[in-house]
Simulated assay, not measured.
Amino acid sequence: MQQAILLHNPGAGEEDHLKSDLVKSIEAAGFGCVYFSVKKEDNWKKQLDQADLAVVAGGDGTVRRVVKELVKRNALDKKIPIALLPMGTANNLCKTLGINRGLDSKHHIENWKKAKLQKFDIGVIKNADTTDFFLEGAGYGVFPKLIKKMETIDMSHVKTARDELQLALEVLHDIILSAKATRYWIKADDSVYQGKSLLLEVMNIQSIGPNLILSPDAKTDDGVFDVVIVNEEQREDFARYIKELITNEKATFDWKTFKAKTLSIDSESKHMHVDDELVLPLKNPLALEVRENVLEFLI
């Protein structure tokens, strides 16, 4: 019997009930199952080697926390597939992988035995001081400003994930109108790009933040990044595009994009993010590269 390790990020008041339901559903699907709350303990890290499947029940931040441990493993260790049960707000990883949050967890679990494995590359960031990784995207400008601003907003009146995503788009719209464009210089494989941007994102999947699709053609296993840039002269069009998304109008935007396997970036921006985490600006220049086939997701 295959052994699953269930790694759950419980919300207030839901842990006992949801824990029981998830464990029963996983065992009914023919797996052994051991449960850990990633919010309360770190013992799960020592149990990964005993698992044939890592089940992550939570949002994109919880997935990143689990993957951070998996990528530390020695290359000779067995590769542990990851199954996602989407329970976060944005669930951008699930959207890229085609995992429908609208379906309940029991439905996903019942289909694991006939699911396929999807290979997944990760991005690695290096400079003289640090090395980090990302699953979704890393970049400068309005998105890290959005992360910082959302941390200060009272969310007590927000009732649903949809409402939270709409609020984030409204905040992003205001940021775009006033954000200072910053200079960048990029060496991408054999090409050079430079200018002043409001947004500069190195994408590993299709969307980031409040489900904003920046690179609809991005693949999880193509060995390249999709680099997306919104330059200063596009400010009004970019703000109009976000406004149209808020009002549910059919919205389009002319994203400036290119693909690259390796990047060197020098940016004057004082704001940077790695996935959904706000980070201090890393010392320039940054070297970014794709590491292929590091992870496998059950889809």
Results as ranks from 00 to 15, higher is better:
Asn74Ser: 10
Leu288Arg: 06
Leu295Ala: 08
Lys250Arg: 08
Asp275Cys: 08
Ala29Ile: 11
Pro86Lys: 09
Val66Ala: 05
His108Phe: 11
Lys78Gln: 11
Asn248Thr: 06
Pro10Tyr: 12
His107Thr: 14
Arg73Gly: 03
Lys24Asp: 11
Pro10Gly: 13
Ile153Tyr: 07
Lys219Leu: 13
Asp154Trp: 10
Thr160Arg: 08
Phe238Gln: 07
Asp60Tyr: 03
Asp190Ile: 06
Ser178Arg: 08
Val202Gly: 04
Gly137Cys: 15
Arg240Phe: 06
Ile205Gly: 02
Leu295His: 00
Leu200Asp: 03
Gly139Glu: 09
Glu14Ala: 14
Asp49Ser: 15
Thr262Ala: 09
Ala260Arg: 03
Val202Thr: 12
Val66Phe: 01
Phe253Ile: 11
Gly98Gln: 07
Leu53Ala: 08
Lys79Pro: 01
Leu282Asn: 01
Ile175Met: 03
Lys113His: 09
Glu233Met: 15
Leu282Ala: 06
Val34Thr: 10
Asp275Gln: 03
Ile82Tyr: 02
Leu245Ile: 15
Ser207Asn: 08
Ala179Trp: 00
Cys33Lys: 04
Ile109Phe: 06
Asn284Val: 10
His8Asn: 06
Ile208Gln: 02
Gln118Ser: 13
Ala239Glu: 05
Asp266Arg: 04
Phe297Cys: 07
Asn127Glu: 10
Asp129Ser: 14
Glu292Thr: 15
Lys283Cys: 05
Gly32Pro: 01
Ile176Ser: 04
Ser267Val: 08
Leu177Tyr: 03
Val23Asn: 02
Arg65Glu: 12
Gly102His: 08
Lys148Phe: 10
Lys39Asp: 08
Ile26Arg: 05
Pro144Asp: 12
Glu14Asn: 13
Glu268Asn: 08
Leu245Met: 14
Val227Asp: 01
Cys33Val: 10
Leu167Arg: 05
Asp254His: 07
Ala28Pro: 00
Ala287His: 09
Phe225Met: 09
Val66Leu: 04
Ile153Ala: 10
His157Gly: 02
Leu18Tyr: 11
Glu277Leu: 04
Thr220Pro: 01
Pro281His: 06
Lys40Thr: 09
Leu177Glu: 14
Gly141Phe: 09
Ile265Asp: 00
Leu97Gly: 04
Gly30Gln: 09
Gln206His: 09
Asp16Ile: 13
Lys78Thr: 09
Lys148Pro: 02
Asp254Gln: 14
Ser197Ala: 15
Thr220Phe: 02
Met203Tyr: 04
Val171Asn: 03
Asn293Arg: 07
Asp276Lys: 01
Gly59Pro: 00
Ser178Leu: 13
Leu286Phe: 02
Ile265Leu: 13
Ile186Gln: 10
Leu18Pro: 00
Val34Glu: 14
Gly209Trp: 02
Asp276Val: 00
Glu14His: 12
Leu22Asn: 02
Ala179Ile: 13
